[in-house]
Design a protein around this nucleic acid. Sequence first.
DNA 1: CGCGCCATAGCATGATAGGGGGGTGTCGGC
DNA 2: GCCGACACCCCCCTATCATGCTATGGCGCG
Lengths: 247, 247
Amino acid sequence: MLTIDAAHAFVLEISQVKNAAGLADLLQEVCACIGCSWFALSHHIDFLAASGKGVRVHNYPEDWALWFDERRLGLSDPVHRESQRSMAGFLWHERIHRETARPGDELILTEARRHDIGDGLTIPAHLAGEPFGSVSFAWKPGRAASPAALLFARMIGGPAFEAAQLIANPGLARVGPRLTDRQRECLIWTAKGNPIWRVARKLDISSDTVREHLRNARLRYGVHGGIPLTVRALRGGDINFSDIAQF
Amino acid sequence: MLTIDAAHAFVLEISQVKNAAGLADLLQEVCACIGCSWFALSHHIDFLAASGKGVRVHNYPEDWALWFDERRLGLSDPVHRESQRSMAGFLWHERIHRETARPGDELILTEARRHDIGDGLTIPAHLAGEPFGSVSFAWKPGRAASPAALLFARMIGGPAFEAAQLIANPGLARVGPRLTDRQRECLIWTAKGNPIWRVARKLDISSDTVREHLRNARLRYGVHGGIPLTVRALRGGDINFSDIAQF
DNA sequence: CGCGCCATAGCATGATAGGGGGGTGTCGGC
DNA sequence: GCCGACACCCCCCTATCATGCTATGGCGCG
């Protein structure tokens, strides 16, 4: 029965869960409640490369998970990609299209169907400084994910992911390194496309100083190069696209 | 009446709304539905400094908004700060505590009460590369935000924020020229932090060819430099953060 | 008062990227 | 059959960046 009360009960139980198995049991119950077969709560990372790190709880067929990991799809799976551009979550059949497809996507989707995974829905789990994540529920081929199920999942997805993170990192409310104001300013001007000497003139400081700020920013993130620095700062929320956009 | 059907109706209407006034009307109806007095959908930015940019729709008292803006609280308001560390949203009385308080927070909260704003709840709106945002609903002093209202807001908050962004930036999504597969590959590897010669080895092509692909990509966007190229490609969706993520 | 953090500034070296040429072959559409 | 888009390859030269090191003054905090 899809009601707010039912969702409330799930959220309360989820907030008290102690380990991954308990969380899996609860998500299985959610599956039964919305009438789907599969659930997957996962960070979008390469689990083979980052063994031990990241959170993942799912009931997908084991060989699908293996196939998925071997191809490092945690980072490039079309559903994961789309979830990174979404705030509210989505039904797969409404947002996974040919237009945004990449070579290889078709293979992934047919392989999923071969493992009895058809339509589904996904709730993104974004938090600045953390890897991307999501909570998905999926049906066997032939049945479509419904808007009501999406709404239901929206009530539960966020708390479920927060619970999973607490289980994986007990007490580790970690926030990545933040940049100082001056470092952010310098980075924003270079990201707009200015060479360092022009940034220096805008900020009315020496270009060596700008260089120094950018260097320190790179050191904080432990990255090499201006492009990775910019990407990390965007990811972590230190700067954002509207800072960079020039109109 | 707090039901999934009611939420569904709101979400459908929100997805069709054409302007900020229409969105405000709908959020006012949501207020009536959950029994609160105030709503506020807002980017967490300094609206005085960034005039014209950013999204904000609210029905707070006008002098409260002025007081808020004058003190540049968009960035440092305790509710906004807490929302930036939350994925699922929260009830103010459960998460706004003395422990995480900063000097000045007490003043903000009493000033809010002076303007008839008591307890409330907030749904964060995170999207990588975008400024932080949130959707809040608040009650007059003496009444407490309820878990059921939080669940209801979870169903509506994300779609409402997405709608607001569409209104503020019509057609910003998926604009401009797209890159070829090869250009995207080269860009992704350089964005990970690889120098061109290493990209060439990964793709098993000459480094001049990599240079060539990157040059053509820059030409398409009409940008100068690898950093602006990366930012444009990220914003346009040609590449995304998980393509670049290292783990 | 010292300690750490920040912003500022300078200098030197080598690696890298950017922008300018030139070219080949394929594929698909007009 | 030609043309445009695409992927591929090669050369050159200069501007820019990354990185190493050192050093100053201001500011807050314990």
